Deep mutational scan, measured.
Amino acid sequence: SSGGSSILDRAVIEHNLLSASKLYNNITFEELGALLEIPAAKAEKIASQMITEGRMNGFIDQIDGIVHFETR
Protein backbone atom coordinates (compact mmCIF):
# COMPACT_ATOMS: atom_id res chain seq x y z
CA SER A 1 0.00 0.00 0.00
CA SER A 2 1.24 3.49 -0.79
CA GLY A 3 -0.12 5.50 2.13
CA GLY A 4 1.31 3.58 5.05
CA SER A 5 0.56 0.10 6.21
CA SER A 6 -2.37 -2.13 5.35
CA ILE A 7 -4.85 -3.40 7.92
CA LEU A 8 -2.96 -6.71 8.02
CA ASP A 9 0.40 -5.00 8.57
CA ARG A 10 -1.16 -2.98 11.35
CA ALA A 11 -2.64 -6.10 12.99
CA VAL A 12 0.75 -7.84 12.85
CA ILE A 13 2.50 -4.79 14.34
CA GLU A 14 -0.08 -4.57 17.15
CA HIS A 15 0.23 -8.30 17.86
CA ASN A 16 4.02 -8.02 18.03
CA LEU A 17 3.77 -4.94 20.22
CA LEU A 18 1.55 -6.83 22.67
CA SER A 19 4.03 -9.72 22.65
CA ALA A 20 6.87 -7.27 23.37
CA SER A 21 4.85 -5.81 26.26
CA LYS A 22 4.89 -9.25 27.90
CA LEU A 23 8.65 -9.71 27.41
CA TYR A 24 9.92 -6.28 28.41
CA ASN A 25 9.31 -4.01 31.38
CA ASN A 26 10.30 -1.06 29.24
CA ILE A 27 11.86 -0.43 25.86
CA THR A 28 13.05 2.62 23.92
CA PHE A 29 11.18 3.67 20.79
CA GLU A 30 14.38 2.98 18.82
CA GLU A 31 14.55 -0.62 20.10
CA LEU A 32 10.82 -1.11 19.69
CA GLY A 33 10.94 0.19 16.13
CA ALA A 34 13.85 -2.13 15.32
CA LEU A 35 11.97 -5.05 16.86
CA LEU A 36 8.80 -4.29 14.88
CA GLU A 37 10.75 -3.29 11.74
CA ILE A 38 9.10 0.14 11.62
CA PRO A 39 10.41 3.67 12.28
CA ALA A 40 10.72 4.64 15.95
CA ALA A 41 8.17 7.46 15.54
CA LYS A 42 5.60 5.02 14.17
CA ALA A 43 6.28 2.57 17.01
CA GLU A 44 5.66 5.41 19.47
CA LYS A 45 2.45 6.45 17.73
CA ILE A 46 1.00 2.93 17.64
CA ALA A 47 2.01 2.16 21.24
CA SER A 48 0.50 5.46 22.39
CA GLN A 49 -2.74 4.74 20.54
CA MET A 50 -3.04 1.22 21.96
CA ILE A 51 -2.44 2.47 25.51
CA THR A 52 -4.98 5.29 25.05
CA GLU A 53 -7.57 2.83 23.70
CA GLY A 54 -6.98 0.53 26.68
CA ARG A 55 -5.71 -2.32 24.52
CA MET A 56 -2.30 -2.32 26.17
CA ASN A 57 -1.25 -1.39 29.70
CA GLY A 58 1.57 1.06 30.09
CA PHE A 59 2.67 4.63 29.75
CA ILE A 60 5.01 6.62 27.57
CA ASP A 61 7.96 8.66 28.78
CA GLN A 62 8.41 11.12 25.93
CA ILE A 63 11.39 12.85 27.51
CA ASP A 64 13.48 9.67 27.57
CA GLY A 65 11.71 8.08 24.59
CA ILE A 66 10.68 4.95 26.46
CA VAL A 67 7.52 2.86 26.65
CA HIS A 68 6.96 1.42 30.12
CA PHE A 69 4.74 -1.65 30.01
CA GLU A 70 2.59 -2.49 33.01
CA THR A 71 1.53 -6.07 33.59
CA ARG A 72 -2.09 -6.67 34.47
Rank of each mutant, 00 (worst) to 15 (best):
G65K: 10
L35R: 04
M56H: 01
E14P: 02
E30L: 09
S1T: 13
S19Y: 10
L23Q: 08
K42P: 02
I60F: 03
N57Y: 12
L32N: 00
K22E: 06
A11R: 07
S21D: 02
R72Y: 12
I60H: 01
L35K: 04
L17M: 13
N26M: 15
N25R: 14
F29I: 08
I63C: 08
T52A: 15
L8G: 10
S48V: 09
T28E: 02
G54I: 02
E44N: 07
E70Y: 14
P39K: 05
A34T: 09
I46R: 01
L32H: 00
S5R: 08
N25L: 12
A47T: 09
A40N: 03
F29M: 06
G33S: 07
L36S: 02
I51W: 03
H68I: 10
L18G: 03
I63Y: 09
S1N: 13
N16T: 09
I63K: 13
N25K: 15
T28Y: 03
R10G: 07
S5H: 10
V12Q: 13
R10C: 09
T71A: 10
I13F: 05
K42Y: 15
A41D: 13
A20H: 06
G3M: 10
S2D: 13
A41E: 14
K45F: 13
H15A: 15
S19G: 08
R55A: 05
Y24M: 06
I66N: 04
G33I: 03
V12H: 09
S19M: 15
L23S: 07
N57W: 10
S2R: 06
G3C: 13
R55V: 06
G54M: 05
E44K: 13
R72D: 10
A11L: 12
V67P: 02
H68L: 05
F59H: 10
L35E: 02
S6P: 13
S48E: 09
K45D: 10
I27S: 02
A11I: 09
A47D: 00
Q62H: 15
G65R: 12
R72A: 11
R10D: 14
L32K: 00
V12W: 14
L18S: 04
S19D: 08
D61S: 10
K42A: 15
D9M: 05
M50P: 00
S48T: 11
K22M: 09
R55L: 07
I63R: 10
F29D: 00
K22I: 07
A41S: 13
G4V: 12
S21T: 06
G54L: 05
S1D: 13
I13A: 05
P39I: 04
H15E: 13
A34R: 14
L36K: 00
T52K: 14
F69M: 03
I46C: 04
E44Q: 14
E14L: 05
L32M: 03
S2N: 13
S19V: 15
S21P: 02
I51Y: 02
R72C: 11
D61F: 06
I66A: 06
K45I: 12
E14K: 03
L8P: 13
E14H: 03
L35D: 00
L23T: 07
R10E: 10
I13L: 11
M50R: 01
E70L: 13
L18H: 05
K42V: 15
F69C: 03
N25S: 14
D64P: 06
A47W: 03
T52C: 10
A20Y: 15
L35Q: 04
T71F: 08
E44H: 13
A11D: 11
N16D: 06
I13M: 07
A47S: 05
I66P: 01
A43L: 10
D9L: 06
K22S: 06
G33W: 03
K45M: 15
E44G: 14
L36V: 02
D64M: 15
A47C: 10
I46Y: 09
F69P: 01
G4R: 07
I7C: 11
F29H: 00
G4C: 11
D61C: 10
I38L: 07
L8W: 09
K45R: 11
K45H: 11
V67Q: 01
E14A: 04
Q62W: 15
A47H: 00
A41R: 09
S1I: 10
A47R: 00
K45W: 13
G3I: 11
N25F: 09
I46G: 00
N16H: 11
F59I: 08
N25V: 09
N16Y: 13
I60V: 09
G4S: 12
I13Y: 07
D64V: 11
E70V: 12
G58K: 01
N25Y: 10
I13G: 02
N26W: 15
I60C: 02
L23A: 07
E14V: 06
I27D: 00
N57L: 11
L32S: 00
I46W: 06
R55P: 01
E37V: 07
E31W: 06
I38D: 00
F69K: 00
A43P: 00
I60E: 00
E44P: 01
I66V: 14
L36Y: 04
I60L: 05
F29Y: 04
A34H: 09
G4N: 12
K45Q: 15
T71S: 12
E44F: 14
S2P: 13
I51F: 08
N25G: 08
K45A: 14
A11K: 09
D64K: 15
R55I: 07
E37C: 13
H68S: 06
N25Q: 13
A40T: 07
K45C: 11
L23W: 07
E30D: 08
N57C: 13
I13N: 04
N57M: 13
F69R: 01
L32E: 00
L8D: 11
E31I: 07
N57V: 12
T52N: 14
E14C: 05
D9G: 06
Q62T: 14
G3K: 09
T71M: 09
A47P: 00
G3L: 12
N16G: 11
E70R: 12
D61E: 05
L23D: 05
D64E: 15
Y24V: 05
F59T: 07
F29V: 06
Y24Q: 03
I38Q: 02
L8E: 10
A47E: 00
R72H: 11
L18P: 00
N16A: 14
L17W: 02
G4Q: 12
S5P: 12
